[in-house]
């Protein structure tokens, strides 16, 4: 889904997320949000990997491999799973920023949606 842009730093704060990798390009602009456990769908439907965040409960090495193949640079693991050191290393190796949040997918998506709506409304009242 194409939305308004949001900076990685803002996304991290909204989700109370913890950054697991050393690389954290806080100014990176995110435009697309892909919330799924289905890696097949990520592979079939990601068009602008560079500006997409993958939000998923799946925390295995294929999550990161999938992101790598479609050039996704930011992955958020939901529901506070413990994350293997190996996974963090795989992310770093491929220049992917890995975040982790205690919240479940439903809350994560809801928070991001309402943030984006608020921003759009602010934008509208400024222009109107």
């Amino acid at each position: 889904m194409k939305n308004t842009n949001i900076k990685l730093e803002t996304l991290k704060n909204i989700l109370n997320a913890e950054v697991l990798t050393e690389n954290f390009p806080e100014k990176l602009e995110i435009c697309y949000f892909c919330c799924t456990e289905l890696m097949s769908d990520v592979l079939a439907f990601t068009h602008e990997g560079d500006s997409t965040v993958l939000i998923t409960a799946l925390s295995n090495s294929q999550t990161l491999r999938t992101a790598e193949m479609v050039d996704i640079k930011v992955v958020v693991i939901v529901r506070g799973k413990t994350i293997d050191r190996q996974l963090i290393e795989l992310a770093e190796e491929n220049g992917i920023t890995l975040l982790r949040t205690e919240e479940a997918m439903f809350e994560v998506a809801g928070k991001l949606c309402s943030h984006i709506k608020d921003e759009c409304n602010k934008e509208k009242s400024k222009n109107g």
Partner: peptide
Amino acid sequence: EMGFGAGMGLPN
């Protein structure tokens, strides 16, 4: 469980 098996691979 590994995130695959949607029947999208070969078409993709």
